[in-house]
Write a protein that binds this DNA or RNA. Structure first.
Length: 496
RNA sequence: GGGGGCAUAGCUCAGUGGUAGAGCAGCAGCCUUUUAAGCUGUUGGUCGAAGGUCCGAAUCCUUCUGCCCUCACCA
C-alpha cells in the first residue's frame, strides 16, 4: 500500500473517537474569496467554510491556528480547546497538513489584523493517508515547493494541490473553450459530434492509432486523426455552419508542442472562402487573448505577442524569398535539388520530383523559426494540400492558410475542394505518392475514403474550413512552455 | 533514433574515492493571537536499478529505466 503508517494510525484513532473521517456532506455558506470580498459585512457573523489544511501553527496543546485553502483563496482559522468537547478536540489534535476540513464560526480579526475564522464547530471532511507536500510561503516567496517536473506531470492532482498557478492554467483553458463556444453560437454555428473511432482515417497526414473491433469480427479500426471528413459530410447534408471541439490522435513524436492526443477545434462555413475565414480566425483568436489575458498584447516567455487584427499575411513563396532568400520560381528543378542538398544533405528527395514538397521543406527549414508574431502563411503548393481548392489564377497553388505564432503552427484552413471528380483524383494521387515513399520509415499509406468521395459527389457547396489547435492557444495565452503543461494528463512512459 | 543533462529522506537540496547530511514535514515535549511561528529533543535513506574498477564507491566505468533540454522524424 502507498499509505503512510502514521496517517493510517490517525485515521483509526478518529474512527475510535466515533468520528467518520470521510463524511457525506458539509454545507458551506461562502467560498473564501466571497468572505474576503464581503469582509466588512461578515465580520462577527457565523460562516461555514471548507478547504484543505495547508499550514498548522500550534500554541501548546490548548490553542492553534491553521491555514485552510479552497479553490482560489486561503483563510486562517483559530481553534481553542475550551470551544470543543473532548473527543472533537482530540480529533483536532490529529489534524495534518493535507486534510480537508469544514469550519463553522464567527469571522474576526486577530490582534495582528489578519482575517480569521474562530472555529466553534469543527468537522474533518477527509483524512489524507498519504502525506501531501504543501509548500510554505511568505508573501510571494514559496519554500520547499514541489518542483520535480516528472511528479508534476504524473501526479497532476499533486501539481494542482501545491500550485495555484497550475490550477489557473486549467481555468484559462476552460475559459478559452467557453469563449469559443459563445463566439460560434453568436455566429449561428451548430456544435456537432464526430466519431473518435473510425474504420477509415483521413483529413490530415499522420500515422493513426490502430485497434480492432470485437463486435465487427475483429475489424481493423482507427482513432480519428482529424474530424475534417466527418464535418464535410455535415455540410453536404445541409448544415451550413458546423463546428466541433474534439480530441485528435496521431501516433507520432512527442515534444514540447506535440502530444499524441490533442484538442482541436474545426469549423466549416458554407458559401465562404479562405479570405473570409482568415478574418474570422484573427477575430476569434484575438478575442480569446483579450478574454483570457485582458489585452491583445500577450507576454509569452519574455516576448510580447500582438494579436491585434489584422495579422500579417505572406504567401509561402514570398516567405521563402524574403526570409529564406530563395526565389523558388527563379530556380529550375535541378537548381532546387542542389539547394535542398546544401541545406540538408540527408533530405530524401522523393520521385517523381515534387516542387510542392520542396517548397514545404524550404519553408519549415528557412522560415518557421522566424514566425514569431501572428502571421498567416498562405497559398501553399497543390501537392501537399489534397483537400483544397486550386488558387484562383494559379493552378499550382491552393487557397490555404496556416497561422503561425511563436514558431508554432496554430491552425490550418482552406477554401475546401468541392469538385468530387477532382477530389477523387487528388486523393488517389496522394495514395500513390504515399506508396512511392513507403520505403521511408514512418510514412503512412492514406486510404481513399470512398464514402467521403460519394458524399462530395452529391454536391458540397463552396465552403471555408478552419482548424485551430486548442492546446497551443492555451500555451500562448497562459505563458506555458510545454504542451504538457496545458494538458491535464499528458502521456508519459509507463513508470516501473 | 542521435547528442547533452538530471535521478540522494515525504518535500527542497548539500555531499567529487574514506563512518550518508541540513532545513521543512513527522514524532515527543515547552509555549492560550500565531502566520515560512519559535524553542528543546528525536525517528526516518538498498544514494533510480544491475554489473564492474578499487583495500574502500552516492562519488569513477559499463549497461538499463525514467524525466528534462536539443537535433532528427512528424507534408
Amino acid at each position: 500500500m502507498p499509505f503512510h503508517d502514521d496517517l493510517l494510525e490517525k485515521r483509526q484513532q478518529l474512527m475510535q473517537l466515533g468520528i467518520n473521517p470521510y463524511p457525506y456532506s458539509f454545507p458551506i455558506s461562502h467560498t473564501l474569496t466571497e468572505i474576503r470580498e464581503k469582509e466588512a459585512e461578515l465580520l462577527e457573523k457565523d460562516i461555514a467554510i471548507a478547504g484543505r489544511v495547508t499550514a498548522l501553527r500550534r500554541q501548546g496543546q490548548k490553542v492553534f491556528f491553521a491555514d485552510v485553502e479552497d479553490f482560489d483563496n486561503r483563510m486562517q482559522v483559530y481553534l481553542k480547546q475550551q470551544d470543543f468537547s473532548d473527543p472533537v478536540w482530540q480529533s483536532i489534535l490529529l489534524l495534518d497538513i493535507g486534510d480537508w476540513v469544514g469550519i463553522k464560526g464567527p469571522l474576526f480579526k486577530t490582534k495582528t489584523g489578519e482575517l480569521t475564522i474562530w472555529t466553534k464547530d469543527f468537522s474533518i471532511l477527509s483524512k489524507c493517508v498519504i502525506r501531501v507536500p504543501i509548500s510554505k510561503e511568505k508573501g510571494d516567496k514559496k519554500y520547499y515547493q514541489l518542483s520535480d517536473a516528472e511528479t508534476l506531470c504524473r501526479q497532476r492532482y499533486l501539481h494542482w494541490i501545491t500550485d495555484k498557478k497550475a490550477r489557473d492554467v486549467m481555468v484559462a483553458r476552460a475559459k478559452i473553450l467557453s469563449t469559443i463556444r459563445r463566439f460560434m453560437e453568436n455566429k449561428g454555428f451548430l456544435e456537432v459530434t464526430t466519431p473518435t473511432l473510425e474504420l477509415s482515417y483521413g483529413g490530415a497526414s499522420a500515422r493513426p492509432f490502430e485497434t480492432t473491433i470485437h463486435a465487427l469480427s475483429q475489424e481493423k479500426a482507427y482513432m480519428r486523426i482529424s474530424p475534417e471528413l466527418s464535418l464535410k459530410r455535415f455540410i453536404v447534408g445541409g448544415f451550413p455552419k458546423v463546428y466541433t471541439i474534439c480530441q485528435n490522435f496521431r501516433n507520432e513524436g512527442i515534444d514540447r508542442s506535440h502530444n499524441p492526443e490533442f484538442t482541436m477545434m474545426e469549423w466549416y462555413e458554407a458559401f465562404t472562402d479562405y479570405n473570409y475565414q482568415m478574418e474570422q480566425f484573427e477575430q476569434l483568436v484575438s478575442m480569446l487573448a483579450k478574454e483570457v489575458t485582458g489585452s491583445y498584447k500577450v507576454l509569452y516567455q519574455d516576448i510580447e505577442i500582438d494579436f491585434t487584427p489584422p495579422w500579417k499575411r505572406m504567401t509561402i513563396l514570398d516567405a521563402i524569398k524574403e526570409i529564406g532568400k530563395v526565389d523558388v520560381n527563379a530556380l529550375s528543378d535541378e537548381e532546387l535539388k542542389k539547394k535542398v542538398h546544401e541545406l540538408d544533405p540527408k533530405y530524401h528527395i522523393i520521385e517523381p520530383f515534387s516542387r510542392g514538397h520542396i517548397i514545404d521543406f524550404l519553408f519549415s527549414t528557412l522560415c518557421e523559426e522566424h514566425m514569431v508574431q501572428p502571421t498567416f502563411i498562405i497559398d501553399h503548393p497543390l501537392a501537399i494540400s489534397p483537400l483544397t481548392k486550386k488558387k484562383r489564377g494559379n493552378p499550382e497553388l491552393v487557397e490555404r492558410f496556416e497561422p503561425f505564432v511563436m514558431r508554432m503552427e496554430i491552425g490550418n484552413a482552406y477554401s475546401e475542394l468541392t469538385d468530387p471528380v477532382e477530389q477523387y483524383e487528388r486523393l488517389k494521387q496522394q495514395r500513390e505518392f504515399d506508396a512511392d515513399s513507403m520505403e521511408k520509415e514512418g510514412t503512412v499509406h492514406h486510404p481513399v475514403d470512398m464514402d467521403f468521395v460519394k458524399a462530395i459527389g452529391m454536391g458540397m457547396p463552396p465552403t471555408g474550413g478552419v482548424g485551430l489547435g486548442i492546446d497551443r492557444i492555451v500555451m500562448l495565452l497562459t505563458n506555458q512552455h510545454s504542451i504538457r503543461d496545458v494538458i491535464a494528463f499528458p502521456l508519459l512512459r509507463r513508470e516501473e
